[in-house]
Amino acid sequence: MAGNNPNAKPMNLTLKVWRQRNRNSEGKIVEYQVKDISPEMSFLEMLDVLNEDLLLKGDEPVAFDHDCREGICGSCDLFINGRAHGPEKGTTTCQLHMRKFSDGDTITIEPWRANAFPVNRDLSVDRSAFDRIIQAGGYISVNTGGVPDGNEIPIPKNIADKAFEAATCISCGACVAACKNASAMLFVSAKISQLALLPQGQVERKTRVENMVAQMDKEGFGACTNIGQCAAECPVGISLENIALMNREFISAKATSENLA
């Protein structure tokens, strides 16, 4: 019953944290010690401890992105010990717990690295490129009101389930962070798949993939070389099948759409 163990031994850790004042300044790794870390803490709670210490000492706390702390908002984005979201598979940083580390460990913490994700400060990065890709076509163009009854469009359960699985993407950006090429194709393909699979998405199927891929390229992400680091590090298990589906959608759209531009 580790989760409820009052005797879990507290740990002392060395943290090597990337510090960078703002987007334009140089950054560097700074070393800190944290003491009496409970194995029951989440990783972010451990950083809270560090920040309270720093503030009380009159230093500036480490800026990092987080919010819901239950693995769904996609805000947290730390590169821990050489891995996006740290060593545990299928886990966001906020759901990573200190029981995965041992007393005396040194932990390196860096921000996501990609030109398309500039650093705001310390460990916080700007992922608005993802929003711009969605704005390029990650939607079904229906206005509020005037839509058919929800049950008028039957969707086979397996298709609905597949679309759902693609839709579980939380836009954290771990795929980009983990990819050798800083490619965003897992993220982009998840949205394209979701909408391409559903009957509602058929109307704009071709323009969607053309526009979203064009925006993805424009943002400066790298291209996929099918290594699979993205899917391996994805905290919600988005599958590489989506990238294949996106490629297929792209090829067929380019071959058959009437878009000459």
Binding site: F79, R113, N115, A116, G220
Partner: peptide, 11 residues
């Protein structure tokens, strides 16, 4: 692809 990440990871 190399250019997509100008600043690399320390670890």
């Amino acid at each position: 692809n190399r250019a997509a990440r100008k600043v690399g990871y320390v670890d």
